[in-house]
Design a protein around this nucleic acid. Structure first.
Lengths: 135, 135
DNA sequence: TTTATATACGACCGATTTAGTCCGATATAA
DNA sequence: TTATATCGGACTAAATCGGTCGTATATAAA
């Protein structure tokens, strides 16, 4: 399936919102979820993942919240996907040092290498797309 | 999720097998499934979808089976995905004439258009990739 | 004309993945 | 001390995917 997850969509909306807010102001998950109609608990987890990958920063406690730690120009779509979902992998065998345990067909599989090239092009496409172009 | 389905993988293996067989010989689902280690019933359904989209042709009855109706050069990866899964759609709103019923955010959604461009590039990538390059 | 073997096709089921919820812990401003 | 925020893991619900089953139809050959 070639599709963005809801989590990626929500992350993009959240970052878009943060980007429109004066950079010194903090925005809470509550404000984000209510103004963009995104389930609170789900968004809260997404925000935490964005903090972990240093795309946004957080301040804890009352009056706490989130702010963008990079400009949208410096964030690309592949980062978001990796942050909230996982690395793009076109097939299960698309990782270094895959063995026959991972796929019986691996050893004489003519498909793996060309599919790997396609995967690289997709990753390249996402990586070269900055959030400035999207949000 | 950005990943090829098992069905697409199996379709590619099946087409690869058919391509290596003299074009006048028919290959049964049984032979395909046994020689490539693909679940029989699942592969049977995939083959039917490939017939419907005229990528392979079938002959019914005893001694029946399948053969490629196009050369791998004339088949592209997007065709296969459309045939066995469905059209690529990066978000749920990625179709003509989407309304607010499909997505409440639709009317003032700044993301839809740029994501549509990315989707087009992915489709373009798959469409320009012929099976000759893969199998 | 019967039998064996093939495709065609839809219904179903189980496993996995995704989306969303809940709860408790910690941080901090007031 | 209290209210409100992030943090983080466990859990549940819903959707999708992978695979199975049963039955109908086609057809070559005994």
């Amino acid at each position: 399936m070639i599709k963005l997850s809801k989590s990626v969509e929500y992350a993009l909306f959240a970052i878009k919102y943060l980007n429109y807010i004066p950079s010194d102001k903090l925005v809470s998950t509550k404000e984000l979820s209510e103004s963009m109609n995104i389930p609170y608990d789900l968004l809260a987890k997404i925000m935490q993942k964005l903090v972990k990958t240093e795309i946004v920063s957080s301040v804890q406690g009352t009056k706490g919240g989130y702010f963008l730690s990079k400009s949208p120009k410096q964030i690309n779509l592949n980062e978001i996907i990796k942050a909230v979902d996982s690395e793009i992998r076109l097939t299960d065998c698309m990782f270094e040092n895959a063995t026959e345990d991972d796929c019986k067909r691996l050893n004489d599989c003519s498909l793996r290498s060309p599919l790997s090239n396609i995967q690289n092009k997709i990753i390249q496409l996402f990586t070269s797309t900055t959030l400035e172009e999207i949000i």
